[in-house]
């Protein structure tokens, strides 16, 4: 059963009592909150996720109301995982959705060590995935949002989750947080994309979440192997450049983009070595979506 098939009252009751359990790729996540506005946003954004019953949840997260000492009348929230707060700060209540999404990201990045976790957008085309490893600010979420509305299947705008023995990637299609200028860019380029409300004044500026395409969520159990690794960089006004990257440089960039490469030890080394040996690696500079999507279509045809 999908979240959207639940009546709103039942959905709200689940969130505020025993918790809403949804499946997101390889994980089940249990969410609790009594915050009415967040309940409404989640009902809109999570409608295509599968409800989970009778299975364990890997992550138990909560958004709870809190009152800062210095601003006791200003509604704030706190993110909890397993009842503990990994953040010292409280956040304004209107940022609850962004805090929840970032909190889940943090939990995945810190707690998952049976998979190699790359800081990378991942999309699939013609049965294989393209990795876009990049640090924040390089435009990987924006590029990912554009690609998944032009025929690519969303795995993630944030995490490359690789099973090190089978060498396959798990989809984990979640909301894609656009920031600042990229919000207008995507609104103009993808009028069909479903965007959420604007969340101003976050630590990363204004944030708007893009809903993953329904098909990507429905097919989130279909894993795939990687065939291309593209290190992207958006540069205003730049003409398109997609240049092959030497293996040694690609290895260094990929390993340093991983959240848990050192934790995994030799397993991580073997996994990254396999990726570099089996994938074609490129450095991408772009400014225009039509150009970059054309080049990536040629690459993945």
């Amino acid at each position: 059963m999908m979240v959207g098939q639940l009546p709103f009252e039942k959905f709200s009751a689940l969130l505020s009592n025993r918790g809403l359990r949804i499946n997101v790729g390889p994980f089940n996540i249990q969410i609790n909150t009594k915050l009415a506005t967040l309940v409404g946003h989640l009902y809109d954004h999570y409608e295509n996720y599968q409800l989970v019953e009778g299975e364990i949840a890997e992550f138990h997260v909560q958004i709870v109301s809190a009152r800062p000492v210095r601003k006791p009348f200003s509604p704030h929230v706190r993110f909890l995982i397993d009842g503990q707060s990994p953040y010292f700060s409280l956040f304004p209540a209107e940022q609850a959705l962004a805090v929840l999404e970032w909190g889940i990201n943090l939990a995945i990045a810190v707690r998952v060590n049976h998979l190699l976790i790359l800081h990378s957008a991942v999309v699939e085309r013609n049965g294989h995935v393209v990795l876009f490893p990049a640090w924040p600010g390089s435009g990987k979420t924006t590029l990912c949002a554009a690609l998944v509305h032009r025929g690519y299947r969303l795995f993630s705008d944030e995490f490359g989750l690789m099973e090190p023995q089978r060498r396959t990637f798990f989809p984990i299609p979640r909301l894609m947080p656009l920031k600042n200028e990229s919000i207008g860019v995507i609104r103009d380029y993808l009028p069909e994309a479903i965007l959420g409300h604007e969340i101003p004044n976050t630590q990363k500026g204004t944030v708007v979440h893009v809903r993953p395409p329904k098909e990507s969520i429905i097919r989130s159990e279909e894993t795939a192997k990687a065939k291309w690794i593209v290190f992207p960089k958006w540069v205003a006004g730049a003409s398109l450049s997609l240049e092959p990257l030497p293996d040694s440089e690609a290895f260094l960039l990929l390993a340093s983009n991983s959240f848990n490469y050192e934790v995994l030890g030799e397993t991580g080394f073997q996994a990254v070595t396999h990726l570099i040996r089996t994938c074609s690696c490129y450095k991408l500079v772009y400014s225009n979506f039509d150009d970059v999507i054309g080049a990536l279509n040629d690459l993945t045809d």
Binding site: S248, F251, E266
Partner: peptide, 12 residues
Amino acid sequence: MFQPDSGKTHFL
């Protein structure tokens, strides 16, 4: 190059 004793990767 991966060194199992230290768990470090060295770029040579």
